[in-house]
Structure formats: structure tokens, C-alpha cells
Simulated scan of single mutants.
Amino acid sequence: MAEDRAGITQRMSAWLSKNSIAKKSTIVVGVSGGCDSIVLAECLFRCGQSIQVAHVNYQLRGEESDGDEEHVRHWCATHNVPFHRFQAEISGDSDGIQAEARRIRYRWFKALQEQLQQPNGSAVYIATAHHADDQAETVLLHLLRSCDPMSLAGMQHVSQEQQLIRPFLDEHRKELEHWAEQWKLSPREDSSNQKSDYLRNRLRHEVLPLLEALRPGAARHLARTADRFQPLAQESRNAVNEALSRCATEREGSVELNLDRWSSEPLRMEILHRIAQQYRISAKATQEIATLTETGVQSGARFQSSTCTVTREKRCLIWIPKTPEI
């Protein structure tokens, strides 16, 4: 179709050009049927981009889930856009439903991306509809969970390694709702988004409105802060990697940390956190591991988790992974 001249499509075209997303590239759009993702698909379509749609049915809301799938399928049929669907089974693992669903979704996106790879080498991107309000929520979530401080940079606009793009990170929810109405998309509403038992939902419906009342534009400021922090976070990660290489060696899955070298590093606690993340040890537990580095701790002192054992041996900390039980 002819290129649409609506404001959001002009901004999208400029964003694609700025990030070197060529017209010949294929973009696989993750579409749930909700407002944000259906507007993203429509917007890319109106920009004349080559798109395909990927939808995951988690079967968690019965007929409502099937209705979402049918809505997305109908949009694809009316726009002559290829439709891909995946029927997922949620097992209910210890990380929670949302985290498990996210893993399933991105694992399938990656497989679909590889399947659609062209012989001529043209890029195949995955696009998600995360927007500026999602970015603000993500920053608050990371603050509350006391995660890696570099995670305060939030979500990247473009992940070159994964060929994952988020074109709407500078747009806000109300803007997307406006275009959903203008384009008569009739987006679906996921009833689980209203549940207060999910922390992100409480941030969305309770905390962010309060922050906006206290300081209008709070969500926008949080999103912009994340943008500014991204290059700083990348430089910090690089610095931690360099420091880690100076004081730690890895052998067959085990890590030996030289405490004499480690103690002279300004980023020494970040080094511990980086190694702990490698073994899926929480930030809280890393504080306990830090006590093993103190003067006077004898050889043989140790910390144990379900994934590894950390042992003090003279002036070293030895991290040994545990073999999973069959």
C-alpha cells in the first residue's frame, strides 16, 4: 500500500532509517492482539515494511485466549500478512507464569527467526511493542528488585546480537491508544493485565499514576533516564569484564578468583555479582559470598547453593558448579 502520512508512521519511518532497518529486511512482529502490538503491526504495514506476525496462545484464559488468536489471525488475513502461531503449555515453574511465558515466547521467536532467514542474507528482525511506559515500569521493577544496577538502563531500542527491535520505546501508551482508535483496530484487552497479584500491574495501575500526580511527566522522565543510562551501562559492563579478566580464571566451568588482585579493583563487588549471575546466584546471596573474602576467613569456609559451591582456599575463592540431579 502507499506509504501512510500519519504522524506515528512518519516517526516510525524515521526510526527505521536511523537504525538502518532496510525495506528488504523481514520484520517478525510479536502480536498478542492487544493495543500496543496490533498498532505496531499496523504501523509497520503502513510504512510499507515487509512483515510477518507471530502469536503465542498460552491457553491460560480459555475462550479469551482463543479469541485473541482469532483476532490476530483476522488482521493478518485482511492485510495479506503471513501469520505464525504457537500453542504453548505453561508448566508453572518456580520463576512464575510471566517469566516462563516470556522464555517460551522468545525461544520460539528465535526459532522462527532462524527458519525465515533468507539465502541472500537479508536480515530478519523480531519486533516487540514495548513503549515508554513499559520502560518506566521496567526501571521501577529493577529498582525494587535490587538487581544489577546496569539493568536500570532498561530495554534497548535495538539488540544487534538478537536482531531484536523495539520501535515504540519513545512512544507512550496514550499515543498508541489514539492510533488504535483512529485506525479502528478494536484491540483485545487481556483481563490478566488488571490483576493486582502481578507487581508490574500494580506499578502500572497504582504507582505510576501516583508519581504522575506528584510530578507530571514522571513516566517520561524515567524512560529518558533509562535512555541516557544505556551507554553508561555498556561502558560499565566493559569495565567489569576487563576487571574480571585481571583477577579471575575459568577452567572447565569453574572459576578461580585471586583475592589479592580482586581486592585492588574499584569494581570488586560488581565482579562478585557478575560471577554469581553466571551461576544463577541472587544479589542477596552474593552479599553472603562477600564475607568469604574477608581477612581472617580460613581455608575451607564455603557457601553452597543449588547451582554451585564457593570455597575459600587461601587467597582464592573457588566457584565449582554442581552437577544437576537426573
Rank of each mutant, 00 (worst) to 15 (best):
V56F: 07
C247K: 04
D148C: 08
V81I: 13
H131T: 02
S13I: 11
N241K: 14
A136D: 02
H131G: 05
S191I: 14
A136T: 04
P216Q: 08
A218V: 03
E325S: 14
Q278W: 06
Q52R: 12
A290Y: 09
G33C: 10
A290G: 05
Q230N: 02
E63C: 07
T128C: 01
K322I: 02
E250I: 12
R268V: 07
K284N: 05
A285N: 14
H130F: 00
A14I: 01
L208M: 13
E235W: 03
A127N: 00
K110N: 10
R46E: 00
Q277E: 10
Q194L: 13
T293C: 14
A101E: 08
A88H: 08
I275M: 03
D190E: 15
E235V: 01
S254Q: 14
R224S: 10
T26E: 09
Q52D: 07
C247R: 06
K24L: 03
R200Q: 10
L176C: 09
V81P: 06
Q118T: 12
D148T: 08
T293E: 02
R85I: 02
A233G: 10
R188F: 13
S186H: 13
E137Y: 01
E325H: 09
R237H: 09
V29N: 02
R5G: 04
E325F: 11
H74K: 15
S122I: 03
L232G: 01
S13N: 09
G154T: 01
I21Y: 00
Q182V: 14
R107V: 10
R237S: 05
C43L: 08
R5D: 13
S32E: 02
L203N: 04
I318R: 06
G33A: 13
